[in-house]
């Protein structure tokens, strides 16, 4: 939505958590409260029926736009998509070394 990437280093853990939950709610049309209740073990791909391959692609593209990161084909694996914690750890790792 917003095409202004967040400046590097500006994003602390809490802000990333909120942003990622809002993004998932936007893509899947979830109630924001439902997304806010996600914890590290909450299942994503394979657990949420709305999250098919097209939706995953939309989710990753939106993560690139909103977080200002680039996600390669090779980055995408079952682990990063299986749980909310996996996705958050992936986003953190992408942001961290910059």
């Amino acid at each position: 939505m917003s095409s202004t990437p967040i400046l590097q280093g500006q994003l602390d853990e809490e802000a990333l958590d909120q942003q990622l939950k809002a993004l998932i709610a936007d893509v899947l049309g979830l109630d924001p409260a439902q997304a806010a209740a996600f914890d590290a073990d909450s299942g994503l791909f394979g657990h949420l029926p709305e999250l098919d391959s097209m939706a995953v692609a939309g989710l990753l593209t939106e993560m690139e736009d909103r977080l200002g990161i680039v996600i390669d084909d090779d980055d995408v694996d079952g682990e990063m998509l299986e749980t909310y914690g996996g996705l958050r750890a992936f986003a953190q790792a992408k942001l961290a070394p910059l």
């Binding site: 939505m1 917003s2 095409s3 936007d26 893509v27 899947l28 049309g29 709305e50 999250l51 098919d52 097209m54 939706a55 939309g58 939106e62």
Partner: peptide, 18 residues
């Protein structure tokens, strides 16, 4: 017209039509 002006997330993002 930016999506932000419509006061909600873009409907093309949705996994299912809405």
């Amino acid at each position: 017209i930016a999506q932000g002006q419509l006061g909600g997330p873009g409907l093309w993002l949705r996994a299912e039509p809405d």
